[in-house]
Design a protein around this nucleic acid. Structure first.
Length: 869
RNA sequence: GCGAGAGUGGCGGAAUAGGCAGACGCGCAAGAUUUAGGAUCUUGUGGGGAACCGUGAGGGUUCGAGUCCCUCCUCUCGCACCA
């Protein structure tokens, strides 16, 4: 019978669905394994990146099930977000309807891949039963001062008509739509993630199962820097003018501060220049700089620009009056928005000083003493050397100078030690409809009030006009907006902002452990049982955003007493992107691969198509392969096999149509082999082979050894580093071996029950090894062999170590490290003397060794003999 | 500039712990089968006539280096005037 994946896969998928095969029952006698892939946004269609991501997870889930783990493997929908709302505006389809339709079709697509999810735990974040708990968590955070509202400049994306968190602004562009982001002043809700900055940073060390680069990105994002804040008094200031506070990590260089630079946006500017005769000029400068887009302004190479304010400040260490400048490169958002400028020891200050002819004062001499204070060509920024020009601190090494000056500053109350973080609070307000309503009430009498817990959820109203004019659509819905104040009973209004959708994904992994819990977001017992996630799998693009927020929420919920874990994800695998070359038609622009002929002509206009470089599959470049088309042509097993075999999971995968053909060919090859043997093996007792290990012919014995060798290899490759590609190649080797041994089947084999016994063991092992990767064909072949049970309920095959010990060894013979021959068929128990003796007698070695004195013999057990002559 | 990673056949990629470089697959070639094609099966396939040479380049350590150390080059990703 021909291998027909469509029929086979439909059969098993129906079976799994009918029997709820993958529904998890908590079984405390088994060790738990929580396997989680990042849930998708329901855009409508699965793409190849999803297939790869979920297949990796599915292999791990199935592998652990067969290895006796109680496996939790859930799936759900990150269902709030802008695309739904934009579709509503453009096509007049309600986000609820659009989202539900998309979920339905994507669920079907996922099921078509044969993924082993417990669908009874499915969640969609847009359901009130889910987002109610976003609101509940918000209220708890509000109570604890972890959620607060403040007016602040925010990142505004004009195209998305909403605010973005700092993490969501990439190179001054919106992370989603890549249009430019502008600053805007708005009242905003924030989560106080900075309260957890230190823990988020320090517990990075405990995340040993995370890729180093993700941890590096997290650490950098948090950006801890230890330093000191120092006040510089303004000379001749009006009494209400506060000193200028600066932040520095180099107190050892304060003696070298020859001017002050203030950020153009700083409110200080206004106070300093008021009434000055060049006030107008400065204002124009400030306006011009703040209009510049940030990406050009914050380039290291961009020109240093500044203006003198006309004011002076007193350097607390030198007592000198130093000029106060406004400088384009000083960031208002970082530190105090003002810096002391030490041109001798900071490259930016150096360039600035050169440009405006400001004094440069060397205060750190390098260890060899070669720095010439009058002829510096660049700043000396290393923290090695000793202090000079620093009064009684001179001659101190940098490190000591730092601590002594810090102490002096603190004693004289000029400043205090402080730790600064780059991380800032998470702005969660969004002026959009399709998200979780923030459960707050604004009352003219009582001010800001939380919605009483018993009134949750605050449900999103469905009858809303989608105009796309900007601003929050909820604001205009009287039935939603108008409310009686729970405190004073007067008319009040609801908060019309909704939450950033990253809130939804910050705790969904907890909800999966008890998705139907009524009174709490998560059942503490369930979360104790299942958390932390043993393996989390997703794209590197979430290295900062989602993963940082999820870690933050986990710590908050722990401190609320709801859960006991401190970190949500014990192990993280960031899979590579799926890539393919692009096709470009001179008339039609980028075209789909299927619209280019084999000879590179456009199917629409017959123009010659140019083939572009290999890059990430994307809609805009149209270099995409539709999983559904792929599966309907080759079946899910082939799609799975190829995406696992073509590259190791963490590396980018280069799509290859020929490679897919190869995967399909391999499954056909397996199918033919098993079909050839299924009838004769059906009646054979599977334990038969165990009884006659010692009396089997050499060839069968060798075969057994090969089989067990591959079981060992596949098992280790999956466990160690998720080397699915090499695991699959070991299975391919096994198939090649079985073909060489007995395909097609001969009458000799048919008549020899011992050989058949070995073959049955081999084919059983083959099917089981294959089953996590290509589950449908595995089940089908398993059944064809007459098994009543299912592969997925079988135990993962065990290898017999004594068999591996029996494997005849090949010893490499070297002379001076160069391979000159080999000894075959050496057994494991040979001693060094025996092996060397035999090596000397090897005819091939004669010409190399004859007449030479062997100075040394290197023997590596089971591997090689090296004669040093 | 800083941080992380990577450079191996025509291609995707293998190579525990420093020990046969190129597993497995693709592609290609030859043969078998077939009316033919496709499919399938078998064999071969780093370079070189050879001795030999070959893992981005150059040094080093070692009996022995794709693997370890140093210098450099190229590429990818992330961050970037962070005081």
């Amino acid at each position: 019978m021909k291998y027909d994946p469509q029929i086979i896969e439909a059969r098993w998928q129906a079976y799994w669905a009918k029997h709820g095969t993958f529904n998890v029952e908590d079984n405390p006698s088994q060790p738990k394994y929580y396997c989680l892939e990042m849930f998708p946004y329901p855009s409508g269609r699965i793409h190849m990146g999803h297939v790869r991501n979920y297949t990796i997870g599915d292999v791990l889930a199935r592998f652990h099930r067969m290895n006796g783990f109680n496996v939790l493997h859930p799936m759900g929908w990150d269902a709030f977000g802008l695309p739904a709302e934009n579709t509503a505006i453009e096509q007049n389809i309600h986000p609820v309807e659009w989202t539900q339709t998309n979920i339905t079709s994507m669920r079907t697509q996922l099921k078509r891949i044969g993924l082993s999810y417990d669908w009874t735990r499915e969640i969609a974040t847009c359901n009130p039963s889910y987002y109610k708990w976003n609101q509940w968590i918000f209220l708890k955070m509000y109570q604890r001062g972890l959620a607060y509202k403040k007016r602040s400049p925010v990142n505004w994306c004009e195209s998305c008509k909403t605010v973005l968190a700092n993490e969501q602004v990439i190179n001054n562009l919106c992370w989603r739509c890549s249009s430019e982001v502008f600053p805007k002043e708005l009242d905003q809700w924030f989560f106080k993630i900075t309260a957890y900055a230190e823990e988020l940073l320090s517990s990075c060390d405990s995340l040993t199962g995370w890729p180093q680069r993700v941890l590096a990105m997290q650490r950098h994002w948090i950006g801890k820097s230890e330093g000191i804040e120092v006040d510089f008094k303004v000379v001749d200031a009006s009494p209400n003018l506060q000193p200028i506070r600066i932040f520095t990590t180099r107190p050892d260089t304060i003696f070298g501060a020859t001017f002050i630079s203030v950020a153009p946006e700083s409110p200080l500017v206004d106070l300093l220049i008021k009434g000055k005769n060049n006030e107008q000029e400065i204002r124009e400068f400030v306006t011009r700089i703040s209009r510049q887009d940030r990406s050009t302004r914050t380039e290291t190479s961009s020109e240093k620009e500044g203006l003198f304010t006309g004011c002076y400040a007193k350097n607390p260490l030198t007592g000198d009056a130093i000029p106060i400048w406004i400088a384009n490169f000083v960031l208002y958002e970082y530190g105090t928005g003002a810096i002391m400028a030490v041109p001798a020891h900071d490259q930016r200050d150096f360039e600035f000083a050169q440009q405006y002819k400001l004094p440069i004062r060397l205060v750190i001499q390098n260890p060899s003493g070669t720095l010439d204070p009058d002829n510096l060509t660049e700043a000396y920024t290393q923290e090695e050397g000793y202090l000079v020009n620093s009064n009684n601190f001179s001659t101190l090494p940098v490190k000591e100078g730092k601590s002594r000056i810090t102490r002096w500053i603190e004693e004289k109350e000029h400043g205090t030690k402080i730790i600064h973080y780059r991380l800032r609070d998470w702005g969660v307000s969004r002026q959009r409809y399709w998200g979780t309503p923030i459960p707050m009430i604004i009352c003219k009498n009582c001010g800001l009030l939380p919605v009483p817990e018993q009134d949750l959820p605050v449900v999103l109203p469905l009858d809303v006009p989608f105009t796309g004019k900007g601003g929050s659509p909820l604001e205009d819905i009287a039935e939603f907006s108008h409310i009686t104040c729970p405190n004073c009973g007067n008319q009040a209004t609801r908060e019309s902002d909704t939450m950033d959708t990253f809130v939804d994904s910050s705790w969904y992994f907890l909800r999966y452990t008890s998705p139907h819990q009524q009174d709490l977001p998560v059942n503490p017992t369930a979360s104790d049982r299942w958390m932390a996630v043993d393996q989390y799998i997703g794209g590197i693009e979430h290295a900062v955003l989602h993963l940082l927020y999820a870690r933050f929420f986990t710590k908050v919920l722990r401190d609320l007493g709801l859960i006991t874990v401190s970190e949500p994800f014990a192990n993280l695998l960031t899979q590579g992107m799926v890539c393919k070359e692009t096709y470009h038609c001179p008339k039609h622009g980028f075209i789909l691969p299927s619209d280019a002929t084999d000879t590179h002509h456009c199917t629409h206009c017959a123009s010659t198509v140019s083939v572009g470089r290999i890059e990430k599959m994307s809609k805009s470049k149209k270099n995409i392969i539709d999983p559904e088309a792929l599966i309907s042509r080759y079946g899910a097993d082939t799609a799975r096999l190829f995406s696992l075999f073509a590259a190791p999971p963490e590396k980018d995968l280069e799509w290859s149509d020929d490679g897919v053909e190869g995967a399909a060919r391999f499954l056909n090859r397996v199918w033919r082999l098993v079909s050839e043997y299924s009838e004769v093996l059906k009646s054979l007792d599977p334990n038969f082979v165990q009884d006659m290990v010692n009396e089997m012919p050499q060839a069968s014995r060798n075969l057994r050894r090969q089989v067990h060798h591959r079981i060992c290899k596949v098992t280790q490759d999956i466990k160690r580093e998720f080397q699915f590609n090499t695991a699959i190649s070991a299975i391919m080797e096994l198939v090649n071996i079985l073909y060489a041994f007995g395909f097609p089947i001969t009458t000799t084999i048919k008549k020899n029950s011992k050989t058949l016994g070995v073959m049955k063991e081999a084919i059983n092992a083959l099917i089981m090894l294959l089953s996590p990767f290509t589950p449908h064909i595995a089940e089908e072949m398993w059944a064809a062999l007459g098994n009543d049970s299912h592969v997925l309920h079988s135990s993962w095959p065990q290898y017999d170590p004594t068999l591996l010990q029996e494997e005849p060894l090949t010893i490499i013979l070297q002379v001076n490290g160069k391979t000159r021959g080999k000894l075959e068929g050496i057994s494991h128990d040979w001693t060094k003397e025996q092996v060397v003796e035999k090596a000397r007698k090897e005819p091939k070695m004669d010409s190399w060794l004859q007449g030479k004195t062997t100075r040394k013999v290197i023997y590596v057990e089971h591997r090689l003999v090296n004669f040093v002559i």
